[in-house]
């Protein structure tokens, strides 16, 4: 049981975005995905989640090749994600934005909603409870009634993580969730990420803040120019000569 990408090749026009990249996400573990800008981290997440077609290579979801499975089907199979640039409906409330993720678990569709069947009412009550619980976990209770357009970007990142967890996924891909977060929020996010792994989720964490990755990741995969540069424990990566030279050098 794992989410694995092996030897992924993707070209956008003449640009080889991924050139044999691989990553492995184990349930119950946090995998850090790091690398310089343009290394292909987000593209690799797009391949795992079905948003980008792969030229060569395979994504395995629990041992089954995901070839041809569309993004929404992969989400239904339990792969959640956030976006590097937060995606939010600016006109809808934060609560409604988060609640959209409940669609996967709910079975009521249009006919049941028009007739307001007992199941429809029951599921909508469940949505309210679930959204309030998620909001509490991520410190969003006070902004639930605000519009998506009214809250700052760093908080949108927490909205995205809260929304992704409401899918009740088995794997969750977080694309730079910590960008712009300050001390207290960073700590909240870090402990939430650990909490997800403790619940048995496989977490893939794209992050530039290596201290944050080092603190929370069990393993770290490093990409450079679309290729796998190194993979190992955070300590091993911090001491890896190639990684220090190509990426960490400036910060280490």
């Amino acid at each position: 049981m794992s989410l694995t990408a092996t030897d992924i090749h993707v070209a956008f026009g003449g640009v080889q975005a991924l050139d044999g990249a691989s990553v492995h996400v184990e349930p119950g573990e946090v995998t850090g995905l790091i690398g310089p800008n343009g290394a292909g981290k987000s593209t690799l997440v797009n391949c795992l989640t079905g948003f980008v077609a792969i030229d060569r290579g395979t994504v395995w979801i629990d041992g089954i090749a995901a070839e041809g499975s569309s993004a929404h089907r992969r989400a239904r199979r339990g792969i959640a994600r956030t976006f590097q640039t937060p995606r939010i409906d600016p006109d809808a409330s934060v609560a409604d934005n988060i609640a959209m993720a409940r669609h996967r678990l709910n079975r009521t569709r249009l006919p049941g909603s028009v007739l307001r069947t007992p199941r429809c009412r029951r599921e909508e009550r469940g949505d309210v409870t679930a959204v309030h619980e998620a909001a509490e976990r991520f410190g969003l209770t006070d902004v639930l009634q605000r519009r998506g357009s009214e809250i700052p970007v760093w908080q949108l990142r927490l909205v995205e993580v809260a929304r992704a967890t409401l899918l009740e996924p088995r794997y969750v891909m977080l694309d730079e969730p910590a960008a712009g977060l300050g001390g207290a929020e960073l700590e909240l996010l870090g402990s939430s990420i650990r909490g997800l792994a403790a619940h048995g989720l496989g977490v893939l964490l794209i992050e530039h803040n290596f201290a944050f990755v080092r603190q929370h990741a069990d393993t770290v995969t490093v990409l450079d120019r679309g290729r796998l540069l190194a993979t190992g424990t955070p300590q091993a990566i911090a001491g890896n000569r190639a990684v220090v030279d190509s990426y960490l050098g400036a910060t280490a």
């Binding site: 569309s70 929404h72 809808a92 409604d96």
Partner: peptide, 28 residues
């Protein structure tokens, strides 16, 4: 009933951002 239901919320979200809706398992 549509506009106040969870399905209405999903549909409005799917219309406003189909990429996001897809990432949440909605067959837009």
């Amino acid at each position: 009933n549509i506009s106040t239901s969870a399905e209405g919320r999903t549909v409005r979200g799917a219309a406003s951002d189909p990429v996001l809706a897809g990432s949440l398992g909605v067959a837009v």
